[in-house]
Structure formats: structure tokens, C-alpha cells
Design a protein around this nucleic acid. Structure first.
Lengths: 149, 149
DNA sequence: TTCATTTTGGTCAAAGAAAGTCAAAATTCA
DNA sequence: TGAATTTTGACTTTCTTTGACCAAAATGAA
């Protein structure tokens, strides 16, 4: 487990304690974990993206900060939001991230999440022509979510 | 008995000890058995496939890993039977019938059944060429069931 | 006020660290 | 022997770490 995971874990714990909002300083955190400051940005973008249910705001200059807010919407709104945000095509990593997020938020069950992912995985779409796979994946994904609303 | 069998045996033993889940590093394992790393992938795909009752997840990059999970069977055998009875292609009415059956039997939840059907419905597969739709439907159906095992 | 300085955080690309893919070569099996 | 399985390795993709350079906000001096 690398540094990024450690940092992410630390932040998540702090978020628990502070009940969903957390303000910290990039250089502080970097020092605490003995890493370069830009690594904090990496952690933010890979593990605290809006896709994953977080809002990250920041401010530079003296007294600058990074503020992380965990957002939790109700099931239906969340599902609708996700459905509407889906484009005409969808790649597998994105599908995974979205499904994970939905499960984490309790919008869909773990079983439903797994089902969803296996329905859009490579093995499931292998008979589909390469060039239309993204489109089919998006359609299947959407249909499943729509029926789960 | 080749190296692949040795590796598979080693993993199975480790799975016993660790009670069904095991996380390891591909290059470590390769070194331990004095083989090329990609051999591990071969072992995974030939001996730890979902069809054989395992789920294999992995992650690349620094701190990467391969995680093997053994899924215990029970109603699983029932699902396996259904999976094995499926052909290369599947029409929608049959899909409906089978899903209904599985739900009635309590092999899968109602939610999973609905999800399954929406994943193989016409709306979900509209982007797929007519002639390969049956094949894709069969694949999706199978994959979902396999991962529900 | 205006502007230079300082204090933060942001971006991006290169280097590094795993794992994945694919097909040829080798081996085993029927 | 011929087909199936296994072994290898060259090449690819994904994720992480690092560092040089950039941009904005605060602060203090002129």
C-alpha cells in the first residue's frame, strides 16, 4: 500500500471525526507524510473527486487551505443525477468508479453493483464489435440504473 | 505436473489459511516460483476463473496487487447448472423465463433478477448489431450469473 | 493606492512501479 | 504424430511518485 492510500485513509478518518468537512494545508500534510506537495493534489483528484462523492475547494496565498466536503444525496436523486450525467459511450474504468460510488452511498446494493459491473465487463461484451462496445456499455448501464430507480 | 499446478496449489493452500481471500504480488510470486510474471496471469485465467468459483481482482502501478477470493457454493451449484446450460445465444423470452425461475427458486434476489433483465433488454442492446444481439445477450446473462455466484 | 514580496496552492510531464496482453516456442497428452 | 496445454518474453496499459515551473492571494512598503 503506497503513500497515496495512507494519505487518503488519514483524510477519510479525519472526515469522520469532523463530520464531513475538513480543512487542511497542503504543505502540512505533505510534510506529515514525507512527500512532495503535489502528491496531495494527486490524492485529491484520484480519491476525492466529485464522482466519488466529495467536493474539494481551495485557496492559495497566506492562510491558504484545501477544504474537503463529503456530500451524500438521497438515493433517487443520486441515481437520476448519475443517469443524466452518462454520455453516449462509457469505458470500463468509469463504469467501475460510478458503480463503486453508488454502492458506497447506499444508492444500490452491493449485489446490484456487482451485477451491474459484470453486465458491462469485457467478458459480457466480447461478442460486440469493438467500435460499438462503449455505446452498448453505456446503454446497458443506463437501463439497469433506470430500472433500479 | 508443471509449474502452473505448483503455483495453483500454493495459492489454494494460502487461501485455506487466509480463509478465502488472498492478496499477493505478481512479481513476488513469479520470483518465488522462478517463472516469468505473465505465467501468473495464465494460472489465474486457467485455474481461478469465476467459472471455477473464484473472483480475481487486481491493481497496477506502485503498490499493485492481485486479490483472489474464493466464493463458497450452495445455491451456487444451482446457478452453475443454469450457467452451464446456456448456449451461445439467447432470446429475450427465454431470458425472462430463466430469470423468473431463478427468482422463484430464491437463487437470486428480485432486485438482481430485475437488474439482469434490464441489462439484456432491447433498450440496453439497441446499439448492438442485430445479428450479434443474441450472442451478446447470452454473454451478459452468463457473466451476471457467474458474478452472482 | 500601487506594487513588489511572500506565502500558498496548481499543473504538467517525466520517471518509476506494477500488472495485462498476445502470440510464438516448448512441452505434454491422447 | 497432432492437438492441446504450458511456458516465455516482448510490448502495452495503468497507477504512483517526483520535481520544475506556474498562478493566485495576502501583506507590507513606497
Amino acid at each position: 500500500m503506497g503513500i497515496s492510500d495512507l494519505i487518503a485513509g488519514f483524510i477519510q478518518e479525519a472526515l469522520e471525526d469532523s463530520d464531513g468537512v475538513l480543512e487542511l494545508q497542503r504543505s502540512d500534510l505533505a510534510q506529515r507524510f514525507n512527500c512532495v506537495p503535489s502528491q496531495i493534489n494527486y490524492v485529491m483528484s484520484t480519491r476525492f473527486s466529485p464522482e466519488q462523492g466529495y467536493i474539494v475547494e481551495s485557496r492559495r496565498g497566506g492562510g491558504g487551505y484545501i477544504r474537503i466536503t463529503r456530500v451524500r444525496a438521497d438515493r433517487e436523486t443520486l441515481l437520476m443525477h448519475v443517469i443524466n450525467s452518462l454520455g453516449d459511450t462509457l469505458d470500463l474504468p468509469s463504469a467501475r468508479a460510478i458503480a463503486q460510488n453508488l454502492v458506497d452511498n447506499g444508492a444500490i446494493s452491493l449485489e446490484a453493483g456487482r451485477t451491474l459491473l459484470s453486465a458491462v465487463g469485457d467478458a459480457a461484451l466480447r461478442a460486440a464489435p469493438r467500435e460499438s462496445r462503449g455505446a452498448i456499455r453505456a446503454d446497458v448501464f443506463k437501463q439497469v440504473l433506470i430500472h433500479l430507480v
